[in-house]
Every structure is written in structure tokens, then in C-alpha cells.
Design a protein around this nucleic acid. Structure first.
Lengths: 167, 167
DNA sequence: AACGTATTCTACGACATCGTACCATTCGAT
DNA sequence: ATCGAATGGTACGATGTCGTAGAATACGTT
């Protein structure tokens, strides 16, 4: 609880919402991870298998973008999936820089079996919220996820700091 | 996007809310991480420094519980902070199994300088939502974070009986 | 065709993260 | 006092995660 922080009301409200968002995401992830681990996968591996399963083979860079991970990270994850014979790489003949990631039959079988169970676990986790609350949450989170950058020029508190160097 | 998944409406709604929650948390974290990295810290290190700064020295296990991290992980993070002379360990004389984590003067100076800027960045990120939306988000996330386990057997979730386990 | 730039991936090092196993200490039961 | 269970940390290995640097490839301009 960061509520020990003494700032203005707007800052406290934002920090409170931020903390609760992070805790919700982390604790739900942690609970779901237990079920995922039982089938020998990590959360990220499940995400990659699921994306390729539902969207078809795609390049590592596309996969990285979809999973909000760095290309270097995706390479590691695909390495591990490849080592376990759940996925494999294939050079894109159209653009030989690209590695197309596809599932092996074993990988396909695994994700086809595991995903419905995972979806059930997600549904159970979310069931503390009513359907309309789930939709509210989705809507609020969508705005947040899209990212801000609203106020480089607004009349808020832009006068005194020198810390804006990122883009 | 898991919208390719063909399941019943309830499952699709839950998956959609879940995905948006995760993406919001991850993308906000990633954007904030850039600012944090500029001062030479990681997100987790900032969290530990902030907790000790605002709540006072505490044992690693308490810190781990507050940060929703494993004890092993906290040990690593404290190792890194200790190596950089931002924090140090002290044996609890009351219970010699415990390691009390406290800040060095350098650590205290750093977090005192950095935290307000971080709070400002959080406020800016959250500013895509109105104050009342931020409160809605906090409220929804609080329910989710507390964890479910309501309905392995019942069909109608009553919604308000609650297990108070963590603080 | 040659060059410069952009894209894609890989290599590597640092840190985060977990689970498991193990050690030290505490504490309750005997 | 002793023993056994519980608790707090540490050690270790596996994986995830990023940033940076570098190699290979593509592509637009000349």
C-alpha cells in the first residue's frame, strides 16, 4: 500500500489506481501460472503457442509485437519451445531475414488440449466480476493500454521540470 | 488478440477483459520502466526502495509479501541493491532468522529524489482516465486482485462474501 | 551495380523470477 | 532439555526479460 505517500489528491488517486491495476494483473497471472505450469509450460510459452495456433505461423517480430515483448526475448522463448519440439523455425523465402514460427504436431496437440482449460481458468478468475463489470474493466484498460502522450502542452504542471527526454 | 477463439459469450467476455487487463498493465509498466531506467533502477528495485522508504525497514519475507514476489526473488533484488550500496541487511536481534532490509543514506537520497518524479509519471499515464474512471478501475481491480475461488460448485455468484487473507 | 539505410534476427550480459532443496533458527509439545 | 514442525534465508538451475551490438538481408537512390 503506497497510501503512505503524501501528495495531492489527484496523484494519490492515480497511484492508488495504478497499484491496484498492477496487483490485479500480477495476482491473476500468478494464480493462472500454477495451472499452466502443471502442463509444463510457462505463461509466455502458452501465449506464443496460443498466438500461432489461433493466428497461424508468423515471423518472430510479429509475434514479439503481439506479445508486447522484445525481439530478443521472443528469440529465447522460441528457442525453448523449439528445444522441446513444440515449435520450429522456418526461413521466410519471401524475406530471408525473417524466421517464421510454426507449431509442430506435438505443439498443436498440446495447445489444442490446454487452451480450453486455460480459458476456463481465466473465466473463473474473472467471475468475481459481473459481465457488465468485465466490460467496464475491458473498456478502461483499453484506454490505458493504448497509451497516453496527451499532454506535452497542457496547462497542468508543465512549467518546472526538466525530466522529459523520452519520446 | 484471442478474439479468434470460438467459445461461449461468457468465456469470450472474460478472455477479452483478461487480455486487456494484462496489456494495460504491461504497456503502462513498460512506459514507466523507461523513466525508471534513466535513473539506473529497475521496476522491482524501485518498488523495494519505495516500500522501505515509506514503511520503514522490514524483513525480506514481509517485503516479498508486499511486492507479491517470492522470497528467493526478493533475496536477489536485495543482493543487487546491496551491491550498489542503496540498501543493506541487518540481522533481526529478536529473531535471528530474519534479515531486516534498510536503506543506506545514498538509497534514501535516491528514492526521495526519484519517487516524486515517478509518481508524476504514473499520474500522467493514468490521466487518460477521468478521476471517476480511475476510481472505477481501482475498485474493479481490487476485487480481481483479492482473488476468487468463489464458484467451483455454485451457479450464481453472490458476489460479496469475502475472504480476507492478505493485507 | 553500388551504396546507405532500415529491418530481422542472433549473441551476450545483466537482472528478474520461480521452484526446489537445504540450512539456521524459533517454538511448541513432550 | 529435547525433538519435530514451522519459519526465514540462501543456493542453484531454468526461464523470462531487456538493451546493446553485430551480422545478414532487403530496398531505395544514385
Amino acid at each position: 500500500m503506497p497510501t503512505r505517500f503524501r501528495g495531492d489528491a489527484g496523484t494519490r488517486r492515480a497511484l492508488d489506481a495504478y497499484i491496484k491495476l498492477m496487483r490485479a494483473a500480477e495476482s491473476v497471472t500468478a494464480r493462472l501460472a500454477r495451472g499452466i505450469r502443471e502442463v509444463g509450460l510457462t505463461t509466455t510459452q502458452l501465449g506464443v503457442l496460443e498466438a500461432v495456433f489461433h493466428l497461424g505461423p508468423m515471423a518472430q517480430c510479429e509475434l514479439a509485437a503481439k506479445q508486447l515483448k522484445s525481439p530478443a526475448n521472443l528469440a529465447t522463448v522460441v528457442d525453448n519451445l523449439e528445444r522441446r519440439r513444440l515449435a520450429r523455425r522456418r526461413r521466410d523465402p519471401e524475406d530471408r531475414r525473417r524466421s517464421i514460427v510454426e507449431l509442430t504436431p506435438a505443439g498443436e496437440r498440446l495447445i489444442a488440449e490446454v487452451f480450453p482449460r486455460h480459458a476456463g481458468a481465466v473465466t473463473r478468475e474473472l467471475s468475481v466480476l459481473s459481465p457488465s463489470e468485465q466490460e467496464q474493466l475491458a473498456s478502461l484498460c483499453r484506454k490505458l493500454g493504448l497509451g497516453a502522450c496527451p499532454s506535452f502542452t497542457d496547462g497542468g504542471r508543465s512549467g518546472s521540470q526538466n525530466n522529459r527526454k523520452d519520446g
